[in-house]
Amino acid sequence: MKCIRWGLVKQQMSVQLLVRTLNFFSLSLFILQPAVFSAVGMLLSHAAGNDVPDLVYSVIGGGIMGMWSGIVFTSTYDITGDRRNGMLELITGSPTSLASVEAIRTFTNVLCGFFAVLIAFSAAMFIFDYSLNGANLWGAGISLLILLFAMWCSGVFLANFLAWSRISGTFVEYLEMPVAIFCGFMFPIRVLPDWMQTISGIFPIRWALEAMNESLLGMRDVRYLAEHWLLAIGLCLLLLVATNWLQNKVQDKIRVNGELSSI
């Protein structure tokens, strides 16, 4: 553990919170957006004639949506903002690698996103009388930890594109909804057509989230859960390998095209 520079982690996290997270925009992303998605889910359910909405997908799913949007947008604005105010150049020119900085920042974003999930859980329990009776708590807990890891891996992977160039950065924003669809943030994967279910298999978030939702709905089949966890972790590791390869490419690319400080 000595190789981790705790001072750097602490400093990056506090700056991330002070500069980017504790503002109206981020709070809207992490709190209001999940509330809106949850409301749409529940009102759709009401319009479809259901008396009781599905709280796991509609309410807690809204929290997952908020966590994901928060990671995508905060990461986008982190690097775009740094590029705009000249910070990206200074960070790249320091002996600390941009990859380390991105990893810590994404970790902070994931923690903030976790806050959105906690709020959604609280809303489900205290406003809509959601009960954890019957839920597989240990299964849900482990799945949630793996989900946070998968979110972090995905965030770090996407951050590379933002550093790569301004143009590729804008496309990361468009990935927000497709990932939400393929990973089944507010509906089970079985709702998707077969070909989309096949594609969704490549996203580690999908496996961790499915395991968490099924655990909350009472799934106790250890084999089913273990398969999901292993798949999620395996895919996360693959994503980290790809991230590492990409980071080296990005390091060279950003020093060739001179886009480090261009607005």
Binding site: L44, S45, A48, D54, Y174, M186, F187
Partner: peptide, 18 residues
């Protein structure tokens, strides 16, 4: 973005039986 958001809502609707 509007296109994918629409698809997302469609699947939400499909799940709840809309």
């Amino acid at each position: 973005f509007p296109f994918f958001l629409m698809i997302f809502f469609i699947f939400m609707g499909k799940f709840v039986g809309f």
